[in-house]
Amino acid sequence: MQAITTYFNFMGNTEEALNFYKTIFGGEITALSRFSDMPGSEKMPAHERNKIMHMSLTTQSGAVLMATDFLESMEQRLAVGNNIHLVINTDSEKELEQLFDILSAGGKVEMPVNKTFWGAYFAMCEDRFGIKWMLNYNYPQNS
């Protein structure tokens, strides 16, 4: 396992929130993708395409804060308990699968293990204690 990172969910103000945290913790925005960058985004409601699909702030101390905007069209609602996930970055697909099987047992699978369009192996679940997890393995980049 490489690291455990926080992942916040917001209702349309992700960019504002992470820029606010940047003023507090320093660092730089290291990733920013909008839903309009996603394949099939032309089928989304126009008012949601500019919302944040993924954004990362790497602080001066090296901590990483990540976030996304929930989408009303997907019936996503912000509530205490679903506003944060813990992200585990793994060293292999196998490690991800093992951790996912253990964490999701007795809980709820939110997104099954799958290869993604952004070049990762990824899954989401809620464990039996109500903690939400994202598991991610980034495939090596061809140089």
Rank of each mutant, 00 (worst) to 15 (best):
E42A: 14
M124V: 03
M55Y: 04
Y139P: 01
F129Y: 07
E42I: 10
I29R: 01
I88R: 05
T23A: 13
W118V: 03
Y137Q: 09
G27Y: 13
L32S: 03
I52A: 13
I29C: 06
L96C: 09
R128L: 07
Q60W: 06
F25K: 10
G130Q: 00
S104P: 03
Y137M: 12
T90H: 01
M66P: 01
Q76K: 04
S92R: 03
L78M: 14
A105R: 00
Q76E: 15
M74S: 05
G81L: 08
S73C: 15
T30E: 07
M38A: 11
V64M: 11
D101R: 10
L18H: 01
G106W: 03
P45S: 09
A31G: 03
A63L: 15
V109K: 01
N136T: 11
A63K: 10
I52K: 06
N83C: 15
F122K: 04
N142D: 09
A105C: 04
A46N: 05
G12Y: 09
A67N: 01
T59E: 08
I102A: 12
I52E: 11
E93D: 06
D37P: 00
L65P: 04
F117Q: 06
P45A: 12
G27M: 14
E93P: 01
L99D: 11
G26I: 15
S104A: 15
M11G: 11
H47T: 14
H54W: 09
S143N: 03
A120P: 01
P39A: 12
E97R: 06
Y21I: 09
K132W: 03
K43A: 15
T6H: 06
D101Q: 14
L103N: 02
F20G: 11
D101C: 14
M44K: 01
S61M: 13
L65E: 07
G81A: 11
M11I: 10
T6P: 12
Y139L: 09
W118K: 00
R34D: 04
D69A: 09
L78G: 13
F129L: 05
C125F: 11
D37E: 04
G62P: 00
M74K: 00
G26F: 15
T5L: 15
G26V: 15
H54D: 14
W133G: 12
M124A: 08
I29W: 02
S143C: 01
A17E: 04
L103C: 07
N9E: 08
M134P: 03
S33T: 12
N136M: 13
G62L: 03
W133D: 10
S33D: 09
K22Y: 03
G106K: 02
E15C: 11
E16G: 02
M134D: 07
